[in-house]
Amino acid sequence: MLEATLNFKLLEMCSKCGACFDICPSCMHIPGYDPREVIKDILNGRHERWLDSGHIWECLECHQCLEMCYQHYGFENAMTSMRMLASKKGIYPAQVKRGWEMFVKTSRLGEPALPARKKLGLPEPKASGVDEFRKLYELLKQSREGGGSPTEAD
């Protein structure tokens, strides 16, 4: 739970279909981006070779493939799983790393622009939920270390 899993049955069907290659914006406009290749390798047990490829990050999560897919599955599931695996190994674009660190530290991806707000006559921004967020994230980490409650529900 709260982890990524891939449905290999759907993926198998997907590898025989390939239809959404023609509507995927990254397939159309980024040379070398081809989830069909990634899916083939996942099914052949050779997914490792993609972990340090920049291509797995070029899926825009636009959900076109998901919406078009007769299985309501989509290329994106395979691409997301690859990114998750790569992240676990610490392989990600520098900006993703920076964004993630800022998120974990502050609970946001940036702080409200105060001088500009004043100039525009906007009210004081509301307080963020950073303290609660930090507690929540700690709980999540503890549960993974198996040390703490709450425990897995199933």
Binding site: L2, E3, T80, M84, S87, Y92, W100, F103, Y137
Partner: peptide, 10 residues
């Protein structure tokens, strides 16, 4: 696209 990739639970 940022947080889910790094930590789905979070």
């Amino acid at each position: 696209s940022l947080v889910n990739n790094v930590d789905r639970g979070a």
